[in-house]
Design a protein around this nucleic acid. Structure first.
Length: 342
DNA sequence: AATTCCAACAACCGCGAGGTC
DNA sequence: TGACCTCGCGGTTGTTGGAAT
């Protein structure tokens, strides 16, 4: 409701941070945790507003941040998630360990968006530009769009819950660290996310989104960047829990998904619960949706994963989805190795 | 060598959600 | 119940450094 006036205060410094300021902020947080961001600057002896301190910490100083060039894998993940989620950078960031939403957003705006545009792919719809013009009238593509929409909504709900739990987990870990110092430093968001993934999926298995409270399906056609003219969305205005009540998520597994959503055929919640967690740092995100996306275009076993439908149209749609992702992979791969753009 | 242009990235701003009193 | 506070998110702007002219 009310606007925080912290940044309106006169006398507070703006602009680039100096090494001294960084040191002060780091030292204070290492010793006390950030606590209230508003109160932090005065306690830490900084002439900054709390918001500025928070941004500096979360986007730059946090020790669990990886800086430097994005790997090809990371680029692919960003592109894929952006196609699903639109400009929901924080949600995308939960799948890129050690990368901040701000960094991903900047990288998208300065690199990936332009690259896709140069390739003839609309960076908003993630479709070939000529395609995007025609898709509004194409029933087949509309169905694909609806499938993507379902995937996005489903993933959106999960990501929201995951992000929340990761935050809580980090907070708990940090508090533990304050009371029981360790040599490992700060908690890993990725490992927490991995655990949360497992928990979330177990929750699905156990009868819906478990305690994933109100993951509002806020993903709309305008919000996710998949515009209505090119990506008609199916209407979905409930919460995940409401969805489970209406039978979209069923207790005994994914039957309903299979029945209503071809794109979800490859997504078996059970498969996520058995994935491994490799390390505490979270260098590998072996679980969840990303893995599925990364695999489904190349792994034939996945593209056939237990599919019982024999409808030729279904296979056709699945092929279209796979072709779409394959085309992105191919373009990214080929251009990064060949194109002078890189 | 000076100036202009542009890409990259850090940081700011405004808004909304959720919590607290 | 509503005003206020805090925080997170996404869009945008500002700054910087390198390339081009």
């Amino acid at each position: 409701m009310g606007r925080s006036p912290c940044c309106d205060k006169v006398g507070l410094k703006k602009g680039p941070w100096t090494p001294e300021e960084d040191q002060k902020l780091l030292a204070y947080i290492e010793e006390h945790g950030h606590g209230s961001w508003r109160a932090l600057p005065s306690k830490a002896g900084l002439q900054r507003c709390g918001k500025s301190c928070r941004l500096r910490w979360t986007n730059y100083l946090r020790p669990d941040i990886k800086r430097g060039k994005f790997s090809l894998q990371e680029e692919q993940t960003i592109i894929q998630l952006h196609a699903l989620l639109g400009n929901r950078w924080s949600a995308i960031a939960t799948h890129l360990p050690k990368r901040t939403d701000n960094e991903i957003k900047n990288y998208w705006n300065t690199h990936l968006k332009k690259r896709l545009a140069k390739m003839g792919i609309d960076p908003i719809t993630h479709k070939p530009k000529s395609d995007a013009l025609l898709s509004g009238t194409d029933a087949h593509q509309s169905k694909n769009a609806a499938n993507l929409s379902h995937m996005a909504q489903w993933e959106s709900a999960r990501l929201e819950a995951e992000a929340r739990l990761v935050r809580e987990s980090k907070l708990r870990s940090f508090q533990n660290r304050l009371t029981r110092p360790t040599t490992t430093g700060f908690p890993s968001s990725a490992s927490a996310a991995q655990l949360v993934n497992k928990a979330a999926w177990n929750g699905v298995n156990n009868g819906g989104f478990c305690d994933l409270e109100s993951p509002k399906s806020t993903l709309t056609s305008s919000e996710n960047g998949i515009g209505p003219s090119t990506m008609p969305m199916t209407e979905f205005v409930g919460t995940a829990s409401a969805s489970s009540e209406t039978g979209i998520i069923k207790q005994e597994g994914e039957q309903e998904w299979k029945g209503t959503n071809l794109a979800m055929d490859n997504i078996n919640p059970l498969s996520f619960t058995s994935t491994s967690i490799h390390d505490d740092i979270g260098n590998t995100m072996e679980d969840g949706f990303i893995n599925l996306l990364l695999n489904d275009s190349s792994d034939p076993s996945l593209s056939d994963s237990g599919k019982e439908s024999d409808g030729s149209e279904d296979h056709c749609e699945e092929d279209n989805n796979n072709n779409y992702w394959n085309s992105i992979f191919d373009l990214v791969n080929s251009s990064s190795s060949v194109s002078p753009m890189f």
